Simulated scan of single mutants.
Amino acid sequence: MTVELAQESIVDDRPVIFLDIDNTLYSASSQISQAMGKRIHAYFVSLGLEEERASELHHKYYTEYGLALRGLVRHHEIDPLDFDKKCDGSLPLEDMIKPDPILRKLLQDIDRSKARVWGLTNAYKSHASRVLSILGVDDLIEGVIYCDYSDPNFSCKPEPDFYHSAMRKAGITDPKKCYFIDDSRNNVAAAQRLGWGRCVHFCEQGLETVEGGKPKRIGADGKEALQDAVVIGRLVELRTVWSELFVKDS
């Protein structure tokens, strides 16, 4: 798996499947987002903020930038790599997720003559690599587009620059050949606005996740802003939604 992308890839005419990683390749029932929310809140408090103010800014930055870390870097001049070490890097992922043979079979059955498979995550490369390795699918991912925390001006979903960069690095020029699945409505809507062709919103109805530090029932606020996107609750449904990309009779 290529997670360090030093240069642009050679243009390849095959479509690219961009897979979000967290809360998409594994279920929100793992409680990883809750554990992460607590660590991020603690990081805000460590900056000298009162509990209420920390919660307020956590939600504000997540809402405005798609990632609380973006607000921390812009307004508090923190070291994003220090943040990653204390938040993502401290998660006991091995105790929270396990190898997933069903996910592995799903990715194995994608016809590689028809599509390539990449990760597209707002996490840093080390976290993405850990998750994919634990799930047992790292060898099935051609490359990972991640937030480069070593760059003080890094971009993230749902910022257009992040999607444009993903296309360049994956070596694809036609947005209609971009297949995309994410658990975030905002991230899927942003891809749609850029003309990405086959967008899917992964929405585990009834489960609880955390957004901006606040608990949220997944799917509780409907399907607004996703009129042209398919909504699924199980990844195996991709076999039907993107049937043209899978090996027949697999």
Rank of each mutant, 00 (worst) to 15 (best):
R198Q: 02
A190H: 02
A225M: 15
I218Q: 12
K214E: 14
P215W: 02
V210G: 03
L207T: 07
F202R: 00
W196P: 00
R193C: 01
L226C: 06
G206R: 03
T209Y: 09
R198H: 05
A225S: 14
L235R: 10
L238I: 04
E204V: 00
G222D: 13
L207C: 03
H201V: 07
G213V: 05
H201Q: 03
F246G: 01
R239A: 11
A229I: 14
V200S: 02
I232T: 04
K214C: 12
K223D: 14
E237I: 02
V236R: 13
K214S: 08
G213N: 01
G206C: 05
A220P: 15
L238F: 02
K216D: 05
V241A: 09
A229Q: 07
E237G: 09
F202P: 00
R198M: 00
L238V: 04
V188M: 02
G197Y: 01
L226D: 02
P215Y: 09
I232K: 11
A220E: 11
K223C: 13
V188L: 03
F246K: 03
Q205K: 13
K216R: 11
K214M: 11
S243H: 12
E224C: 10
V210P: 08
R193V: 00
L245I: 06
C203F: 00
E224I: 11
Q192S: 06
G206A: 06
F202Y: 04
Q227N: 14
G233E: 13
D221L: 12
S243N: 10
V230E: 08
H201K: 04
Q205W: 11
F202Q: 01
G212Y: 05
L245N: 08
D221S: 15
L235I: 04
A190Q: 01
W242D: 08
Q205T: 08
I232N: 07
G219M: 09
V231R: 15
E211D: 13
P215D: 05
E224W: 12
E244M: 10
W196D: 00
G213Y: 05
V230T: 13
I218N: 07
E211K: 11
S243V: 12
L207K: 05
R193E: 05
G212E: 02
E211G: 14
K214W: 13
G206S: 07
G197D: 02
Q192C: 06
Q192Y: 04
E208D: 10
K216C: 12
C199K: 00
L207D: 12
V188S: 06
L207V: 07
V241K: 02
G212T: 09
D228I: 07
V231M: 13
A225C: 15
I232L: 10
L207N: 04
F202T: 00
R234E: 08
F202W: 08
L235T: 10
K223W: 15
A189M: 06
V188R: 00
K214P: 07
Q205Y: 15
K223N: 15
V210H: 04
E244K: 11
Q227D: 15
V236A: 08
F246E: 06
E204D: 05
A229H: 06
C199Y: 01
R239I: 09
V236Q: 12
D221I: 09
F246L: 01
